[in-house]
């Protein structure tokens, strides 16, 4: 087990290295980043001086290696646009993105579960049909369009909800100010609600379909028949025998869902002017802010790979028959 975790962590490092290399190469292939940080009329000497000052005059392999070495020391370099450490710039925005992602993750899991189980238990009935038709519809709407519809309906027409903005919750928490965080909570949720639901509708639909088929699969098994035959009530059969075993495939898919959610989050952030990393990365790439892009990509891919690792470990935990080696 420990061996497995260590091997997985090493693999994680390889994967994140691959991601950084890919990012590094593509941003440099796009032309000299120096040009974004000097005036158009700069002379050749000025350009060369600026390039040396920003460190872009060194050979690419050297730049890449020095980025990695500094990263290992916890130094991400200064953002070229903001002139402060790139790590700080990303972390300033990360909490808002995490609030949205975790919120959507929570909602999509909690809501999808009863839908999927109910549809499986009432297989072939009207309830099942309606729920699954709803799920197909939910999977067919772009999250950003849902966001726009929410703004139009709940924000503009009914005036129930704020159409943009953000109240911080995770950030005061990280700063150790739990009192402030709790005081912010009601407002934070109010601002979070529309973007969170917009992001999660796709996942709710997808998850509920998967949960339905996972439960159906299990309900066919002999041990469920046995459980029913020995006279257990339906509730016990479902909870103790069916759902518990259906959890294994479900958990894997849920963790992989994280990646999907993050994609949606970055788009929906634009709809609601959410102060997350989405817009930040967009601007950073446009401005060829190399340190900032690299830092953001490293942090996000760790988040990604981390979620997948958790899924794998949960797998072994939920089903002791699976030995991770």
């Amino acid at each position: 087990m420990h061996k497995y975790i260590i091997r997985r962590l090493l693999l994680t490092v390889v994967v994140v290295l691959g991601v950084t290399l890919l990012t590094f190469l593509s941003i440099h292939l796009a032309g000299d980043p120096t040009l974004f940080y000097i005036s158009e009329r700069a002379s050749k000497e000025e350009r060369l001086a600026a390039r040396a000052r920003l460190g872009f005059d060194r050979p690419l392999p050297e730049q890449y290696i020095s980025f990695l070495v500094n990263l290992a020391r916890g130094d991400t370099g200064n953002s070229l646009q903001h002139r402060v450490p790139a790590f700080d710039v990303v972390m300033e925005r990360m909490p808002a993105t995490l609030e949205l992602t975790f919120g959507a993750f929570l909602v999509s899991t909690v809501v999808a579960f009863p839908i999927g189980v109910l549809a499986a238990m009432r297989r072939g009935t009207m309830i099942d049909g309606t729920l699954m038709l709803g799920a197909i519809l939910g999977q067919s709407m772009p999250s950003f369009w849902l966001g726009l519809m929410f703004i139009l309906f709940f924000g503009v027409t009914l005036r129930w909800m704020p159409v943009s903005g953000h109240v911080a919750f995770i950030k005061p928490m990280l700063e150790g100010d739990a009192g402030q965080a709790l005081a912010n909570l009601p407002e934070a949720i109010r601002y979070l609600l529309m973007p969170m639901v917009a992001v999660s509708v796709y996942s709710i639909s997808r998850n509920s379909r998967l949960i339905r088929s996972a439960v159906l699969e299990v309900l066919r098994q002999d041990y469920v028949v046995t459980a029913r035959a020995k006279g257990l009530n339906e509730r016990t059969v479902m909870v103790r025998h069916a759902i518990r075993n259906a959890l294994i495939p479900i958990v894997t898919v849920l963790a992989l869902q994280f990646a999907f959610l993050l994609n949606g989050v970055i788009v929906v952030e634009t709809v609601f002017s959410w102060p997350g990393v989405g817009r930040l990365i967009f601007d950073a790439v446009n401005q060829r802010d190399v340190p900032l892009v690299m830092t953001a990509v490293v942090l996000l891919s760790f988040l990604f790979v981390g979620a997948n690792l958790v899924a794998d470990l949960m797998y072994g935990f939920l089903d002791p028959r699976i030995r991770l080696e």
């Binding site: 292939l29 970055i266 790439v285």
Partner: peptide, 22 residues
């Protein structure tokens, strides 16, 4: 398959932003 792992760890939207900007 390692290439596939790398691709999976790269949030698609980031990848798209990078490549299309460039």
């Amino acid at each position: 398959m390692r290439l596939a792992d790398i691709q999976l760890a790269y949030p698609f939207i980031l990848f798209a932003i990078m490549i299309l900007t460039i």
